[in-house]
Computed example of a mutant assay.
Amino acid sequence: MDISGNTIFIPGSTSGIGLALALELQAKGNTVIIGGRRTALLERLAAEHPGLDTVEIDTADAASIQAAAKEVLAKHPDLNVLVAMAGIMRVEDWHRPESFLESAEAVVTTNVLGPIRLIAAFVEHLRTRPDATILTVSSGLAFTPLKVTPSYNASKAAIHMLSESVRLQLADTSVKIVELEPPAVRTALLPGQEESEFAMPLDEFVSEVMTLLETRPDAREIQVERVKFLRYGEARGDYDQVVAALNAADPHGD
């Protein structure tokens, strides 16, 4: 995707990677609309960052996605980029169903159904634009599992294969499918992750992502160097060692 001159909607971007990416994209000359559930927080972010538009959206709620899509497209008919950013991560113990089932269902609803519903709400419009992009967000854990987050790992593996498959189907349109694959980043995705030495500093991650978007406009996968250890373990032939190293090193892998 081109790095400037776009109109970009990023739901789930009131904090963490989503917000940091939104602000960097705005600084590059893009019109950016962020989405989130909390009206007061959206109003504060709009006041703190002039020119940043906001819309209320709950990506776990199908009706909310439809309502937000109508609002965004009514205000920004030139929208040409959708970033399916929203996601949740939960630590789960699969020894007992009563301890993980509710969590697993919530993760799948947000992380898999959310992006599917977002794409469904915007794809017809995006196909009318001469140069459009859907940026999906998977994870290094789509390729190497962290023991304590089974549903999250599975949801991100689903997003990877969804991205691969939808890219094939939309190859005859103007819509590009680009997959962002973060490693662990210092955000509030899990308790304690913002201070984790294992996780990549947020500013470093976003800076490297922006460089990749700018220098590799035709890339299908956006991978910072730090995620390649997880992404290519199977291809390198050291998958078992990568799994062991991840689960020994990560503070949530005890």
Rank of each mutant, 00 (worst) to 15 (best):
S15F: 02
E194T: 14
L126R: 05
A157W: 04
A106I: 01
E181S: 12
L212R: 12
E194Y: 10
I119E: 01
L189M: 14
V108Y: 00
G29R: 01
N247K: 11
H160P: 08
A60T: 07
I119Y: 05
D218R: 12
E204P: 08
F100W: 09
T144V: 10
V72F: 01
G51Y: 10
S64I: 03
E92D: 11
E92A: 09
E48M: 10
D250M: 15
L202M: 04
G237I: 09
G114I: 00
S163N: 05
E24I: 13
E179W: 01
E102Q: 10
N153L: 06
G237R: 05
E195R: 15
A244T: 14
I159T: 11
F143A: 13
P150L: 11
A249K: 13
M200E: 14
S15R: 13
G18I: 01
V166E: 06
V178E: 04
T59F: 07
L168T: 13
E234R: 14
L118D: 08
E221R: 12
N111S: 05
P50Y: 02
E179N: 13
S207F: 11
D254A: 15
S207A: 15
R167T: 03
Q241A: 15
I8M: 07
H252P: 02
S207V: 13
D58M: 03
V107W: 02
M89D: 12
T14A: 03
S103Q: 13
K28R: 15
R90Q: 14
A47P: 12
T215S: 13
D240E: 14
P145F: 04
R129D: 07
A47G: 14
D2N: 15
F143Y: 11
S103Y: 03
D93I: 10
K147H: 15
I57D: 07
D240S: 14
F143H: 12
Q66C: 03
L189Q: 10
F100V: 10
S138T: 00
P182G: 08
I134K: 00
I65G: 02
F229A: 08
Q241P: 11
T39C: 06
A121V: 09
Q241C: 11
A120Q: 13
L73G: 00
Q26W: 07
L190C: 09
V148E: 14
V185W: 06
A171G: 14
S155V: 03
P191R: 05
Q193V: 09
P251I: 09
T109A: 13
L23S: 07
I134F: 03
E56W: 08
